[in-house]
Simulated assay, not measured.
Amino acid sequence: MDNKKLKGIVDIFNDSGLTFMEINEKEGENAFSIKLEKKGEILPVPASAHAAPQFSATEPAASDTEREIKDFNKYRDVKSPMVGIFYTSPSPDSEPFIKVGDKVKKGDTLCIIEAMKLMNDVVAEEDGELVEICAENGSLVEFGQVLFKIF
């Protein structure tokens, strides 16, 4: 087995999250065998397999909850444009502008930042869904600090 092939197998193993791998190679021949283990289950890979493991069609389809998992690389951070006090609502007794799970449109007010007795609206630059509020209401925020994560 050449180094490229071995490196490919190790890379696949590392990317898959498996916990056990066994490789047997016969000397003088190109034949070898590999065993990968996941959750106590041994999955033999035939010696003729040179690519990533193929999964059978009998595997259960992804559940609805697995489909709803969002890719963290697609989140957009809304950062503070200034130093000031972060407020999620226009007054202490009113509802917040947005809550986690709300859909936002470009131009919607997300929060207010008070700086030098002036109230400054922070608006959404893109459409999306609010997935996290990263600052605490009434707290001091710094320039460039992440206030929200929008998907």
Rank of each mutant, 00 (worst) to 15 (best):
K38L: 12
S48R: 05
K35S: 12
T88E: 05
H50T: 15
E27V: 05
K35E: 05
F151M: 14
I113R: 02
K26L: 06
V78M: 08
T58Q: 14
A49L: 14
P92D: 13
A62F: 11
C111T: 06
E132A: 15
A115R: 04
S33T: 09
D77G: 05
F97M: 01
I42R: 10
L43W: 08
S94G: 00
L43Q: 09
Q145Y: 05
E132T: 14
T58P: 04
K149G: 09
K106E: 15
A52F: 08
F97G: 02
F55E: 15
D15C: 03
G84L: 11
L18G: 09
M119V: 13
K149V: 15
L6K: 08
I85Y: 04
H50G: 04
E66T: 02
D2C: 04
E27M: 05
F97A: 03
I9Y: 03
E37D: 02
S94C: 01
A124H: 04
D15Y: 01
V45E: 09
G40D: 02
R67N: 07
A135D: 12
D102N: 08
S139F: 11
D71A: 04
A52G: 09
E59L: 15
L6S: 07
G144H: 06
I112E: 03
I23M: 12
T19N: 09
G84I: 10
R67K: 13
V45R: 10
D11Y: 02
E129K: 03
G40W: 00
E142W: 02
E136K: 08
L110Y: 04
F86Y: 11
G107A: 07
F148D: 10
S139I: 13
D127H: 03
N14M: 10
P44H: 06
L140V: 10
P60F: 07
P90E: 12
E25M: 03
T19Q: 13
I133Q: 03
K35V: 15
L118N: 06
Y87H: 11
R76Q: 12
V10R: 08
N137G: 13
S48M: 09
L110D: 09
R67I: 08
E66R: 04
V100T: 10
D127A: 08
P60D: 14
T19F: 04
K74F: 01
I12Q: 04
N120Q: 11
G128H: 01
E29H: 00
D93L: 07
E27T: 01
A31I: 03
G8W: 07
N24H: 04
E142H: 01
S56G: 15
S56C: 14
F20D: 13
T65A: 06
F86I: 13
